[in-house]
Design a binder for these strands. Structure first.
Lengths: 205, 205
DNA sequence: TGTACATCAGTGAACGCGCGTTCACTGATGTAC
DNA sequence: TGTACATCAGTGAACGCGCGTTCACTGATGTAC
């Protein structure tokens, strides 16, 4: 995607990529329109040919992140089938894997302060992602005796929160809160204990 | 703490309070030195009589937060004694309660990007807080048969991550990720399932 | 194939703004005698 | 109790900076004939 003359060729995506890189490096705070433009080899004013402004650019970065995120979760879910348990665990792992592989997207999605309701497209794709995890939870909840089955939405919220917490606290170098365990192990073991608590896997293994 | 004349009386703390209020309202991004000074009824330059600069002010806000946080956790732990289980659950609940009651502090501590190693005092008090949760986890882990007991540090990391995730995703109005459950219930139920998974509470109740 | 022209995607200069920080200053306070 | 003076905690003006955004412009591209 090198700029070669007056016209860039694919400036829109180049700007998104630049934004993602900057967000990853400096956080959503550190990201500036001007710097993203510079990184893409273009004048700040050029950005306005493709986006309404700074917020709009971040929103697009976030949208692309949710798109990947939803795909990744869906893929993990499908791969775990037909075992509801395997599908559920896989989506949890996929969450963490996504956060580690696409940190810029992750930050744009969850830490940039952009509301998921900023645009209809963003709302739709984030709903799709949440939907996958909720479906996995629902499948799983059918294996629990009906009378003491907690709502599936609660399941998925639990795992979502757990995954997000692990990412924020332990998968970043962030607030010095180093853990003696790698995040993957932490999440895996937590989900293991959790599923045992639901009576979905054998008590000792 | 009203300013009455040329001298303020307690400007240092007034600035911290102003910073906390602004951080709570606008996030760590939205917080500016100048605005905090204005809120305290003082010229931006006056801030430099009490702090080295913007970062230093945030660090102090964070430090005060950790101080309260550690106290709250300690109190919860003590109150749960002598039951290791009660003490452990109480610290988890205390985490969430703190986040809800002191949102400005919480954000300064965990979302402002200030490293816990910024100053020795900050490092010390954050270690104290973490220590309480780790001790609660250790007490609890003694009730698990030794041969299949996971490390206590892992426990506490799990609960810490879960609590943080619940706060970030569901206890804020933030990224439109509304949940049909109140955060307290979410955390309580998740910890319940988790403890059941550890075999520490009865399978069905 | 060649020319005229519309459309598009960039430029570059300029803007107003609020930021963090500095500096010499001055008003208020407290202490020594 | 009163005066002189050191210390302290503020002021207010100024700075340089980089930001997001606007505007009239111009160079490149593609299409019609």
């Amino acid at each position: 995607m090198r700029k070669q003359g007056y016209h860039h060729g694919n400036l829109r995506q180049a700007l998104v990529d630049a934004a993602l890189k900057l967000i990853e490096e400096k956080g959503p705070t550190g990201f500036t329109l001007s710097e993203a433009a510079k990184l893409a080899g273009v004048t700040p004013a050029a950005v306005y040919r493709h986006f309404e402004g700074r917020e709009d650019l971040i929103a697009e970065a976030s949208r692309q992140g949710y798109e990947i995120f939803a795909d990744v979760m869906q893929y993990a879910y499908d791969k775990g089938q037909p075992s509801a348990l395997a599908a559920f665990s896989a989506t949890g792992r996929a969450y963490l894997a996504f956060a580690r592989r696409y940190p810029g997207h992750y930050i744009a999605m969850f830490e940039s302060g952009i509301s998921v309701n900023k645009t209809p497209e963003l709302a739709a794709v984030s709903a799709r992602a949440r939907g996958v995890l909720e479906r996995a939870a629902e499948d799983l909840s059918r294996h629990i005796p009906e009378n003491r089955r907690p709502p599936a939405a609660m399941f998925s919220a639990h795992v979502w929160a757990l995954s997000h917490g692990v990412v924020e606290l332990f998968a970043r170098n962030s607030p010095g809160t180093a853990s003696p365990f790698p995040p993957e192990e932490l999440l895996e073991s937590a989900i293991g204990v959790y599923l045992r608590g639901l009576g979905l896997i054998a008590p000792d293994c």
